[in-house]
Design a protein around this nucleic acid. Structure first.
Lengths: 217, 217
DNA sequence: ATTTGTGAAAATCTTCACAGCC
DNA sequence: GGCTGTGAAGATTTTCACAAAT
């Protein structure tokens, strides 16, 4: 498929085609009128804009189940991420191969980071040591941190932190699940009251299908 | 701290206090004028609204590193999620203890789901089998699926799927990281041109600090 | 005196609709 | 004829600002 129209892409993504075109227009004018978007060129331009064409060396600190899962995760390499090092505080882990990479002891953290020019660190340690790991990463020059530990990290200005809470997606599903149950009950009640009518396509009102996001990043 | 004002909460969360009050008002009138919100009561009301006060039995299918990491994740229990079963297709895994729960073979998947009244399933299998696992879960009565496998799942109407891509958060960090570098370069250029002025507090224009989200759920 | 809850205003985002180009 | 790029219209979200409550 050499080219694609905004209509096709929008249908695939489930959005309005005008919105998609307007969004694309902020990146530049990469389409051809009467033809559509050249797929390869478009992918390249979006990748470039998102920073996926660069090589991003990352370190993962804390090689438990989650750290190992991330190290093995296939999606990283294809997006320009390169696991520069796996680091763990347990001397027994040092030297073990995980995802084809030897785990290194955390004593060498600072040197590993400067030697590899690492600016992104991933923390998959237990929560009790996450802050001190974070402090060392920042002191060593890391300016972006992806935190899987269930702790809020404090960092100086200019350092980005994103916290991943693996239970949040489950909470969103549970929220919808609850709504499904509630709506069913409401429909049943309504059906009991107005027996003969029968109308089962009522859609949700309420703000939107999504969870009201009071809490930000 | 028995009560909290919208101003305090908003400052902590980094949002406007009027927005926070308006958001809360959709859940009901849980504050007291001149006083604020009773913390315990507010937490309970929000938890209830989000479905966190219910007991949600979940099954995790695919007990590799990621499945094991999730099974061990402390955040689940406190949010009402109960790991009802760990399921794996590998006979060698059956009977092994992970997070204090014995792994069961996938032959019994249907029975496990109906016996435990499970409506939420988590898929942490390799992508090649994710769709067939998904089909079996849905046929057995699961209506919400959390998918960690890098595949798009197709499901019948009425079933919710959320896909977690562990590299997306890294991509967002890389995006900001790239912007930091770009801005620095732009500032340096500007500084070189207009040497004596010196103004370093210029903030980002552009839509917002976040990534433009063209692709939806 | 203080803080909520909320109409109304302002800002932002999304969709429409069509001129312009292939 | 077909499809992009985009002003203008429409819809939604956010903020302001203040009456009502304790």
């Amino acid at each position: 498929m050499p080219t694609v129209s905004s209509e096709e892409l929008a249908a695939a993504a489930g959005v309005n085609s005008a919105k998609l075109r307007k969004d694309f227009s902020y990146l530049g004018s990469y389409g051809t009128r009467g033809v559509g978007y050249d797929v390869e060129y478009l992918v390249y331009q979006i990748s470039r804009e998102l920073g996926l064409t660069q090589d991003w060396p990352v370190v993962i600190v804390g090689i438990g189940n989650l750290g190992a899962a991330l190290a093995n995760y296939g999606g990283f390499a294809s997006r320009g991420f390169r696991v520069a090092a796996l680091i763990d505080a347990d001397p027994a882990m040092a030297g073990k191969q995980v995802a084809g990479i030897a785990v290194q002891h955390s004593d060498g953290l600072e040197k590993i980071i400067s030697d590899n020019g690492v600016s992104i660190g991933v923390i998959t340690t237990p929560p009790s040591v996450a802050q001190q790991v974070c402090d060392r990463l920042v002191a060593a020059g890391v300016t972006s941190i992806l935190n899987f530990a269930p702790t809020v990290l404090s960092v100086p200005d200019g350092v980005d932190v994103r916290k991943v809470d693996l239970s949040i997606e489950l909470q969103i599903l549970a929220f919808h699940e609850q709504r499904k149950a509630g709506e069913e009950a409401a429909l049943n009640e309504a059906a009991a009251l107005a027996a003969p009518v029968g109308r089962a396509d009522s859609t949700d009102q309420g703000p939107d299908g999504d969870v009201p996001a009071v809490m930000p990043a």
